[in-house]
C-alpha cells in the first residue's frame, strides 16, 4: 500500500497503459491520429497566431511514435518528445527522417525527469492514460516558461464518449485497438479547466473536435462531449 502511494507521488505513469501502447501501430496509414494531427497542428498554429513554429522549443509529453513531434519539427520548432515506453521511443527514433534530426529529439523518460522549461508544452491524448490527473498537470505546469503555452487534448467523460469512443471505435468499427481507452479515466472539460487553474495555468480557449471516418478527416466542432482541445498559458509568476 505504501509502495503504491509512493509510486503515485513519484510517477503518474500507469504500467498497464504502457504495456498496451508497446504494440500500438503508430505509423499505420489507417491510424486516426494522422488526420487528427492535421487538426492539432492547425489548432496550435491558430492559437499561437503564427504561420510556422520557428524558434519555439516544444515539449511533446507522451509523444508515442512521434506523430506530432515530427509535425512540429517540420513546422520549424525544436522539439523534445518524451515517452515512458521504450518501444514507442524506438519506433519514433527509427521513423525520424534525417532531415528532422536537428529539430526533434526523443527521450525515454517520465515527465518528472525533464529539467528544462519550454515555450510550449503539448500533452495530446495523454491525460486520459495517466494515474492521477492533478499531479500530472502540476508536473506539466512546472515544465513551461512564464507566458508559455500548454496544449491539452483528451476525451470527455460522457455517455457519448463511452458509446462512440469505446464501444463503437474499439469493438464495432475497430478503428482503435480494444482496450486503448478506459472510460473512468476520461475527463470533462469543466473538470480539466478547474484542475488546470489549480495547477497555475490560465485556460484561454477550448474547442471540441470530431472525426469523419469515411472521409478520414478531422474537424472542429462546438460539441465537446467527445474529444476536445484546450489552450492554456502560464501567467508570469508574481
Amino acid at each position: 500500500m505504501l509502495c503504491k502511494l509512493v509510486q503515485r507521488f513519484v510517477s503518474t505513469v500507469d504500467p498497464a497503459e504502457m504495456q498496451r501502447f508497446a504494440v500500438y501501430k503508430w505509423w499505420n496509414p489507417d491510424n486516426v491520429l494522422h488526420p487528427f494531427s492535421d487538426l492539432r497542428s492547425e489548432y496550435i498554429k491558430t492559437r499561437l497566431q503564427v504561420q510556422n513554429l520557428k524558434g519555439l522549443r516544444i515539449l511533446d509529453v507522451g509523444c508515442g511514435g512521434g506523430i506530432m513531434s515530427e509535425r512540429l519539427g517540420r513546422l520549424g520548432a525544436s522539439v523534445v518528445g518524451i515517452d515512458p515506453s521504450e518501444e514507442a521511443i524506438n519506433v519514433a527514433s527509427l521513423h525520424l527522417p534525417k532531415i528532422l534530426k536537428g529539430n526533434v529529439e526523443y527521450k525515454n523518460c517520465e515527465l518528472s525527469a525533464v529539467d528544462e522549461k519550454f515555450d510550449v508544452v503539448l500533452a495530446s491524448e495523454v491525460i486520459e492514460h495517466v494515474t492521477d490527473h492533478q499531479i500530472f498537470l502540476n508536473d506539466l505546469s512546472g515544465k513551461v516558461k512564464d507566458n508559455g503555452a500548454v496544449f491539452l487534448t483528451t476525451v470527455s467523460k460522457t455517455f457519448e464518449s463511452w458509446l462512440l469512443g469505446i464501444v463503437a471505435s474499439e469493438y464495432i468499427l475497430k478503428i482503435v485497438d480494444p482496450g486503448t481507452h478506459q472510460w473512468d479515466k476520461f475527463i470533462n472539460p469543466d473538470d480539466l479547466i478547474r484542475m488546470c487553474n489549480l495547477s497555475g495555468l490560465e485556460v484561454h480557449h477550448s474547442n471540441g473536435w470530431f472525426i469523419d471516418y469515411l472521409k478520414f478527416r478531422a474537424f472542429f466542432t462546438s460539441y465537446s462531449r467527445l474529444g476536445y482541445l484546450i489552450h492554456c498559458t502560464k501567467p508570469q509568476s508574481a
Binding site: P29, D30, H34, S37, D38, S41, E42, E70, L75, F216
Partner: peptide, 12 residues
C-alpha cells in the same frame, strides 16, 4: 501543418 509528404495516409 507539418505533414510528412510521403505518408500514405495523405497520399491516398
Amino acid at each position: 501543418i507539418g505533414r510528412d509528404p510521403g505518408h500514405l495516409a495523405f497520399l491516398q
